[in-house]
């Protein structure tokens, strides 16, 4: 029986890792459209996982698991995509700044962005500021995400921005921050590109920074009283 993108989507949201992988492989052998397999299959499956998380049916473990289901599928599809079509919204490198060991927050942001179709590179925790820039260069990222949960680690966000400026890379990347003590005001004061209150809010933020239409939220998010903020002077 021939495979359909719906089968792939279902295997992804049901977290059937081997089945999803096998279906994608079969789809490639049968000549199924790779763009459809990626967008209507794998990414749509991830979006279903996100919806189930929002409804309380799925939890963080399922989100983590869905990333593990999708990753080998995407690796299989990627070489078959036509040029200039990667199906992704943009690429994000993300991690916790120096001195910060909190993992849950940035892990959730990673998952939400992946579910929304971003390619995300998780860098880890307690990272040197320069490491973010090296990895952004290496992965040709669009966005650098910094997680800083403590008052004493927020200054490292400024340090990353300082390096970007001094290395003439400031306009090459969008830099976003988040974490318990981070606020829109602090992001604005350091001239970051954006801030999100939580993982869910990081999705429209990154979409907006990648130039996508976010509807009514656009105007609200230029101010400080919205769950996410973008730097309207720069974008």
């Amino acid at each position: 029986m021939s495979v359909s993108v719906e089968d792939i989507k279902e295997a992804v949201w049901k977290l059937q890792k081997q089945k999803a992988y096998d279906l994608v492989q079969q789809g490639i052998e049968e000549g199924l459209d790779p763009v459809a397999m990626l967008k209507a299959g794998v990414i749509a499956g991830l979006q279903t996982v996100g919806a189930k998380f929002g409804e309380g049916e799925y939890f963080l473990a399922e989100l983590v698991m869905s990333g593990k289901v999708a990753e080998p599928c995407i690796d299989l599809i990627n070489p078959h995509l036509p040029p200039n079509v990667d199906g992704m919204q943009g690429k994000v490198v993300i991690g916790a700044v120096k001195g910060d060991l909190h993992t849950i927050g940035y892990g959730l942001v990673t998952t939400q962005l992946e579910l929304a179709g971003f390619e995300v590179v998780k860098l880890g925790i307690d990272l040197d500021s320069m490491y973010f820039i090296e990895k952004a260069e290496e992965h040709r990222a669009d966005i650098i995400g910094l997680s800083a949960f403590l008052v004493t680690t927020i200054p490292y966000c400024k340090e990353v921005l300082g390096y970007l400026q001094d290395m003439n890379l400031r306009d090459k990347y969008k830099l976003i921050i988040g974490g318990t003590e981070c606020t829109a005001e602090k992001a604005d004061a350091m001239d970051a590109d954006g801030w999100a209150l939580n993982a869910v809010a990081s999705v429209p933020l990154c979409k907006r920074l990648m130039g996508q239409d976010v509807g009514d939220e656009d105007a609200k998010a230029a101010g400080h009283d919205h769950p996410w903020w973008y730097n309207s002077h720069r974008h």
Partner: peptide
Amino acid sequence: PGLAALGPVEPKAGTLSE
């Protein structure tokens, strides 16, 4: 409580300002 800044100095983890 903690201070976000002491004058111009922000406490930066693992540095002298902390």
